Simulated assay, not measured.
Amino acid sequence: MDFWAAVAVLLRRWYVTFPAFLLTIAGAYLVYIGIPPQYESSAVLMLTVPTTGSTQSTRPGKPEMLINPLLNFDGGLNMTASLLVRVLATARTAEELGVRPDGDTGYLVNNGHPNPELLVNTPFLMIEGVSTDPASAQEIVRKVVGRAKVELVTRQRLLNAPPATYITISEVISPTPAVIQNRGRLRPAATASLLGLCAGLMAGFAAESVSAGLRRRRAPRTEDRPPERQPDLPVCERTSPRRRE
């Protein structure tokens, strides 16, 4: 069956396909409004070294060179960013920040790539908070930012790093106001629409098939017809030959 033949079938069975199309629209709309909207807030943090560098002189009288933190990025910052990503992404940290597994609020942390295993060379921390409430989405981002600063200081203190060499965190982008994200509702609605269209097409072709079957049943079959009776032919009397005298 080619394309135009299929279109002809759907148009011929409009009393099946048209209600199915209306039900598909109604179902997709109900799915769309039935899913609560998601709000998203984000923040970007950057790790930098102090202006005096990552080392501390043991001779106080020796002059120290001052370094621009934005011109002093090395692998240590990348490793520290990956470490913070792992710490902040644990279930224990999320629970301490008030995120419940069955709750409507959550967050994501990465260092510029969604897979922290790749150890992407970047001193940044990307934080995204999602929630069904805009205030909660922005608040969870603030909590993660504060926790990142605390974790960074705690890790360096545990390693007995000189305070003058502590890595610092600066907010490149502070927690943004939450904006609505319709991705979570559009995908299920699109899926429901696709399934509804497929069901409507199947219903239209099924109606065509049933109708064709009924027509074949109503039409008399050739082999079921009684054989036509041939007209009776007159029987000629057989005359006996004359006997020779």
Rank of each mutant, 00 (worst) to 15 (best):
V16Q: 01
I169R: 07
L23Y: 01
A203N: 04
P227Y: 09
F124M: 15
L30C: 03
L97R: 02
I67V: 10
E95N: 12
P116K: 11
N78I: 07
G61Y: 10
G213E: 08
A199P: 01
R243G: 06
A203P: 00
P60L: 12
T176D: 06
A192M: 15
L22D: 02
M1Y: 07
Q156G: 05
A189G: 05
T122L: 14
R243A: 11
N110V: 01
P50G: 08
V153F: 03
L201G: 12
M126Y: 12
A26W: 07
P116Y: 08
E117G: 09
L47I: 08
M79R: 15
S211T: 14
T48P: 00
Q156K: 14
I169C: 03
S209A: 15
P163L: 14
L125M: 09
P226C: 10
S240P: 05
P36R: 13
A207T: 02
R217I: 04
L158E: 13
A207Y: 07
R92C: 00
L84R: 06
E128W: 02
L70M: 10
L47A: 04
K143V: 06
A91G: 10
T222W: 02
N182I: 08
I127V: 11
T168I: 09
N121V: 00
P226F: 14
R243F: 03
G146Y: 03
K149G: 12
V85F: 02
M126R: 13
K143F: 03
F73Y: 09
P114C: 10
N121Q: 15
S42P: 00
M65C: 00
S57C: 05
R229N: 04
P220T: 15
N160E: 13
A199H: 03
A81S: 14
S41I: 04
F73I: 06
I33A: 05
N111H: 08
A81M: 03
E95K: 11
F21Y: 06
W4Y: 10
Q156W: 10
V145E: 06
P101R: 11
S82R: 13
A6K: 14
E40V: 15
T176W: 04
I127W: 11
V210P: 00
P220R: 15
L108F: 10
N160H: 12
L214H: 11
V235K: 05
V109W: 04
D74P: 06
L11K: 11
T80D: 08
N160F: 06
H113N: 14
V210K: 11
R229E: 09
W4E: 13
V153E: 07
L197E: 06
A190H: 00
A26L: 14
I67F: 09
G196D: 02
I67E: 05
L84S: 04
P101H: 03
T222G: 01
N111T: 09
